[in-house]
Design a protein around this nucleic acid. Structure first.
Length: 476
DNA sequence: AAAAAAT
């Protein structure tokens, strides 16, 4: 049952604000209007907010509908004011194909998550809608776009119809697993991994209906090698979309791939963070984007206790880490380093101390990387020493501790707030509690930490690693 | 600086 609001058309909207099934959401036609029943902000702040968060929309989307739910958690901008926007409270309402619904329940999902409630009806609408969605890690983004891909796919057609790009090899494998699980009741459906090391015979065309891959390989498969006919792609997904379109990230390749796709191809961009300039760029490259923002950054950070350890050198950081070691192996931990070199050094040093640790960085062979992440997932490895390759998206439920052996900085040496949030988001997933420890070893890195602290407006407390009682306390 | 390519 799609509910009455599902059938509501523009005509009715002109006369009354309509209450949607999701709480007390109301929608207004015309200019971008924010209706917030808990409005505490002044008009000025409100205007400032809207202009900042949705910059180009006030100018171009005069017919769009903008709404905020009563908890102030979800912001939606809907392009077509006539299409029936509503949110769903159950997967049945989406009228998915039976095999797909079966897959959803087989994965243990009972009800749509907050982002899914709003994103799914939009993505499944006819004709297909483009979407830029932002919601923090662990809120069900992957399942959302996998569902969108699987509902559009035609298993009888033996060519790629859905294409998903991931920033790293490990994330592509992880997302691929979700696609396989959710699509397992389609007997004909096949998935291809367009990742480094997956070599195909020249001149071949691939028959798999869904392709998941990393940008370089996908670009090759679409252009030079012609394994994929990009003109037949119906759904294009960018996972961790902010890095995929960032100048510093994979922008070139992502955009080159995007340009090969047909005009009517559905574009779906998902990420936990969007830095301002990237956010603007996203709205430029995606035609008529619908926008969903699930804002609750603080809540994520509230479930993660953040500390810092003051040291004066790399060796002291290593000592402090050894002191922490007893506490962090309680469940599983990830230790982030700035370079591949530091990561392999640290892993070697920890091994020398008799600790069992795993190492994962981009300099390793893909086969080895797949084996390491698999062992970590299975819990055979408790501690993973890694680089930013694992900063995003990697989802291992037992990870309760994240250690920034080096703080995240960009190429100019400025704090990388987005990466910080992504890294510590590896813990505290699905509402679980997490612990993040930052290692500071100089005035410079203390300054970086202070700026990160200010950015999130969240106190990061000092931790004394010589005080065993204190370590005991934070571990529980 | 890391990631991403059959370059």
């Amino acid at each position: 049952m799609a509910g009455a609001a599902g059938q509501v058309r523009g005509r009715a909207l002109r006369r009354f604000p309509i209450t949607l099934p999701v709480g007390d959401v109301s929608i207004c036609e015309g200019a971008v209007v924010k209706t917030n029943t808990n409005a505490e902000k002044t008009d000025e702040e409100e205007k400032g907010n809207t202009a900042q968060s949705l910059p180009s929309l006030t100018r171009t989307a005069s017919r769009a509908k903008y709404l905020v739910d009563n908890t102030n958690q979800v912001e939606v901008l809907q392009r077509d004011p006539n299409s029936p926007l509503y949110s769903v409270k159950s997967f049945e309402e989406l009228r998915l194909k039976p095999q797909l619904l079966q897959g959803v329940y087989a994965m243990g999902f009972n009800r749509p998550s907050k982002i899914q409630e709003n994103a799914l009806p939009l993505m499944l609408a006819e004709p297909p809608q483009n979407l830029i969605a932002q919601s923090q890690s662990g809120t069900g983004k992957t399942a959302a776009f996998v569902l969108a891909m699987l509902s559009q796919v035609e298993p009888a057609n033996k060519y790629p119809q859905c294409l998903c790009l991931s920033p790293t090899y490990e994330l592509a494998l992880q997302t691929g697993k979700v696609i396989e699980q959710m699509g397992k009741f389609y007997p004909e459906l096949k998935l291809a991994y367009a990742v480094r090391g997956n070599k195909l015979e020249r001149g071949q065309k691939i028959s798999e209906q869904i392709v998941i891959g990393t940008p370089g390989t996908v670009l090759d498969w679409c252009s030079k090698l012609k394994f994929i006919d990009p003109k037949k792609i119906k759904v294009f997904v960018l996972d961790e979309a902010d890095v995929m379109i960032a100048t510093q990230g994979h922008q070139d390749q992502s955009i080159r791939i995007q340009r090969m796709l047909p005009r009517n191809c559905q574009m779906l961009l998902f990420s936990a963070t969007f830095e301002d300039s990237v956010w603007k760029f996203a709205q430029k490259v995606v035609p008529d984007p619908n926008i969903i923002k699930l804002k609750r950054e603080e809540e994520t950070l509230d479930t993660i206790k953040q500390y810092y350890v003051l040291c004066s050198s790399r060796d002291e950081k290593f000592q402090a880490l050894c002191n922490l070691y007893g506490a962090i192996t309680i469940a599983q931990a990830m230790i982030f380093c700035h370079t591949r070199k530091t990561a392999s050094w640290l892993a070697a040093e920890l091994s020398k101390e008799g600790h069992q640790v795993a190492l994962l960085s981009g300099e390793m062979m893909v086969e080895q990387r797949a084996a390491v992440i698999e062992r970590f997932r299975e819990g055979k490895e408790k501690v993973l020493v890694t680089t930013n390759v694992c900063a995003r998206g990697i989802d291992v439920e037992q990870v309760s501790v994240v250690i920034n052996f080096d703080l995240p900085v960009d190429k100019d040496g400025n704090p990388d707030n987005e990466t910080y949030l992504h890294r510590i988001g590896r813990t505290g997933r699905f509402g679980k509690r997490g612990l993040a420890v930052n290692m500071v070893d100089s005035k410079h890195s203390m300054n970086i930490l202070n700026r990160i602290q200010e950015h999130f407006n969240k106190k990061i407390e000092r931790l004394d690693t010589d005080d065993l009682d204190e370590i005991e306390k934070i571990a529980n």
